[in-house]
Design a protein around this nucleic acid. Structure first.
Lengths: 337, 337
DNA sequence: CTGAAAGCGCTAACAT
DNA sequence: ATGTTAGCGCTTTCAG
């Protein structure tokens, strides 16, 4: 204990917490003691005492995925603004790991939680979260069967708009490629695609088997080998877009001449590869920011008033943008930031 | 307290920690109580009691950088294996933020720390870390003026090898592009480049002004505009490589015909863009793994024996690999995993 | 302006 | 096999 400075624990505590109501001389003396001892307050003791831990958890599938990495960075920035620590845990989209992660965070008594849930069939997650009785915000995907506020992109509208855009280009046989069709986001996008297709009296064709370049190649051969070969491809997730693009490139398939390509989610080199790849772009940083800010809003509200039940669970639906580049048949937009 | 199960705190504690020496019936009863109460042990109390926190910190410049993101994911995997929590904090290469981050982690009493330091001129970081007397492993860059073990790529040899490779291709006027020349890694790479150039009696030319596409464009114009225009470009970091590539592409400069390109650090689409980009590849996942494993080794060693002073600080130097693709003038390697 | 004492939830000695 | 007790380091009444 830093009471080697010859003061009581209370005074020491006051000094550490800003030094209100402390004689300047005492203050200086204690600060000197702190410095010389290399004293660092023990967060665990503070936490134990009750009150906020100034810690929030962020549970997401993968930190390598640029989409989630950006969200995490944005969220961390907000957390720092609120003088809080962000603990990031990854799940690889495995519900079991996800449950573990949430459990660990609750043990650590995080003040709140942002989560991009895998959405297992059961609602174990929802139950666990409810019990914790801390503010929770879902990101990118809502939490199945629960009332937590969420911040998601408008996947349905995005895919619908993308599909319509391809239709406007005059393509009729538009095939949809994706992987992980069980994810909420993907399901929504498939719905959007199908909706746009059927509305235009076209037959939707979804191949959800793409998990790597190999499967992309197989799918592509299938689609190009048919009598009435596909005219355009809508790829519903980043990795699918890239795998597909690579295969197209390797096989020297002319894009958009032989087949057009439009992807969901932007990626760094999309404007640079030839042809440049048109995409639906989500406001990624916004998602991280909004989710974190929403969380802190709830945190602070619930701290001040008990009537947090009053505010309805908020569903923030962020709009997406079509970035016209060459691969869909557009002439690329001139300006780039 | 879960003593509503009608048992003493000790028994409850035992149940939580695996249930050794507990009557099966009591055990079942307590477990039922735990479940019905939705009880979750308070990590802070455990931590306070002393012992390990099963928490390690990871301080790095940015989580959006795919390089560090991969390291973080690899490290988190190892941490999980050791039943520990990884707390990732980013610094944006700002020494002040870095100090803050480390401080926060020490307050939280992390068992150990992995850090990719910004290397401020002062050795505040080294001092802070030493005082904490916890195991520390430096990643990607050693900690200036200190004795902590580190896991770094062999930047000097990598850049030297890259340069030699370009020389072997017959290029003579080889220019080096980079940004952030103050970073340890970059300095080493510049050294490697210069060494290879002077050894071959060629004049090294380093332009360290590239921070975005604009500056890349300026630098390129400069280099191509000269009387004896450059024949090859060595780009020392990922973003520089990509910016340069984009500018080359935009200006329809023929690569490697007009000018060859070789980059440091691989990136996802490097094999796919045209021309495919040759790069020096670092064993990224290994770096994260090795660093985390080294940390835990020290952690466990220091726990069992006090003689940790005996082991010399370990410097792990990982070797890099040249990936021959088209942009340097090679014919791309046939196979890809 | 300062200090004494209680107590946060848990674990580890030490009984029983 | 189980309960009792002390104490981890801090903040927080409550008295001086």
């Amino acid at each position: 204990m830093a009471k080697k400075a010859g003061v009581g624990t209370t005074t020491a505590s006051r000094v550490i917490n800003g030094g209100q109501n402390v004689d300047p001389k005492t203050l200086a003396r204690v600060q000197r003691a702190i410095a010389s001892l290399g004293y660092v307050p023990n967060q665990a003791a503070r936490t134990l005492k009750g009150g906020r831990t100034r810690t929030i958890g962020f549970v997401l599938p993968s930190i390598v995925d640029p989409f989630f990495a950006s969200c995490a960075e944005a969220a961390q920035a907000i957390a720092r603004l609120h003088d809080s620590l962000l603990i990031v845990l990854t799940t690889q989209n495995d519900p079991k790991t996800e449950l573990d992660a949430v459990d660990v965070l609750i043990r650590h008594r995080v003040d709140g939680l942002i989560i991009a849930p895998c959405n297992a069939e059961d609602d174990l997650l929802g139950k666990l979260l409810s019990r914790a009785s801390i503010p929770v915000v879902a990101l990118d995907r809502p939490i199945a069967g629960s009332m937590f506020p969420s911040v998601v992109g408008n996947n349905f509208a995005g895919a619908q708009f993308a599909t319509r855009h391809l239709i406007e280009h005059g393509y009729r046989r538009i095939v949809c490629f994706t992987g992980e069709p069980d994810l909420y986001t993907i399901r929504e996008r498939i719905r959007g695609y199908c909706d746009a297709m059927t509305s235009a009296r076209l037959k939707p064709v979804v191949d959800s088997s793409i998990r790597d370049r190999r499967s992309a190649e197989r799918a592509l051969k299938r689609v190009l080998g048919e009598a009435s070969s596909a005219e355009a491809l809508l790829t519903l997730k980043n990795s699918t877009t890239i795998d597909t693009f690579e295969v197209l490139q390797e096989n020297n398939v002319e894009v958009p001449g032989k087949i057009a390509l439009l992807g969901y989610d932007d990626f760094q080199l999309a404007p640079t590869v030839r042809p440049s790849v048109s995409v639906i772009q989500q406001p990624i940083d916004d998602m991280g920011h909004v989710a974190a800010e929403l969380l802190f809003k709830r945190l602070l509200d619930s701290a001040s008033s008990q009537f947090l039940g009053g505010a309805p669970p908020q569903q923030v639906l962020l709009t997406t943008k079509l970035i016209r580049r060459a691969s869909c048949g557009c002439s690329p937009e001139a300006s780039r930031p």
